[in-house]
Amino acid sequence: MLELHDREWNEFYLRDIFPDIQRGKRLKNADHIQGKTPYVSSSAINNGVDAFIGNDDKVRKYKECLTLANSGSVGKTFYHSYEFIASDHVTSLKSDRLNKYSYLFIATIVQRLEEKYSFNREINDVRINKEKIVLPVDESGTPDYDFMEQYIKEREQQIVQKYIEYTGKNIQFGGGETSAVEGKGMERILPT
């Protein structure tokens, strides 16, 4: 099992990890056109998805990247594998060297910026370019993306295994369980 404390770690500028850093574009609520494309803003819930819109003009679309909230829920960081439109309240962090798993690993580290910033001290473009994060490194001192990927895959497998064990113990006979309250061995189907 891979462990975080077994690795060497080093500091890296965000701009060195993510060669493509770009803030989304302002789009007032009144200008939203109803649609199916996720609109990512600085919300702390739903992966930052604030609405679904159909705008194509004067917007910035991204895919396969992280978003970092600049304002509002400052520091919230989410991974997006799907195409979305970004508001000016988030910055896209993209690198062709990363995949789903290494993005998820790095997202948890980038999100630590929320401890440094607040509603009154937002993350602007100048501050992003000065920010550093700490990542595990390989023997040559470069970010160990393979380790990050394998680490997240292991954790994902552990969660899946726990879920399988839980459902195997708690779901019987088509989703029902015997309720002590109902007594007399009557089957109760959950939920109703």
Score class of each variant (00 low, 15 high):
F18G: 00
P19A: 06
I21Q: 10
K28R: 11
D31N: 12
I33Q: 13
I33H: 12
G35T: 11
G35E: 01
K36I: 14
K36P: 14
T37A: 11
T37P: 11
P38N: 03
V40H: 06
S41V: 10
S43N: 05
S43R: 03
A44G: 15
N47M: 05
V49W: 10
V49C: 12
D50R: 15
D50I: 02
A51C: 11
A51I: 01
F52S: 08
D56R: 11
D56A: 11
K58S: 15
K58V: 15
K61C: 06
Y62V: 07
L68F: 08
A69T: 02
G72T: 04
V74H: 00
K76D: 09
F78N: 07
E83S: 13
D88G: 12
H89D: 13
T91F: 12
S92G: 02
S92I: 01
L93Y: 00
D96W: 06
D96T: 09
K100Y: 10
S102A: 11
F105A: 01
I106M: 01
I106H: 04
A107T: 14
R112M: 14
E115D: 11
R121N: 13
E122Y: 10
I123R: 02
N124F: 07
D125K: 09
V126W: 08
R127K: 12
I128P: 05
I128S: 11
K130Y: 07
V134H: 08
P136E: 09
V137F: 04
G141N: 10
G141L: 08
P143S: 06
F147N: 02
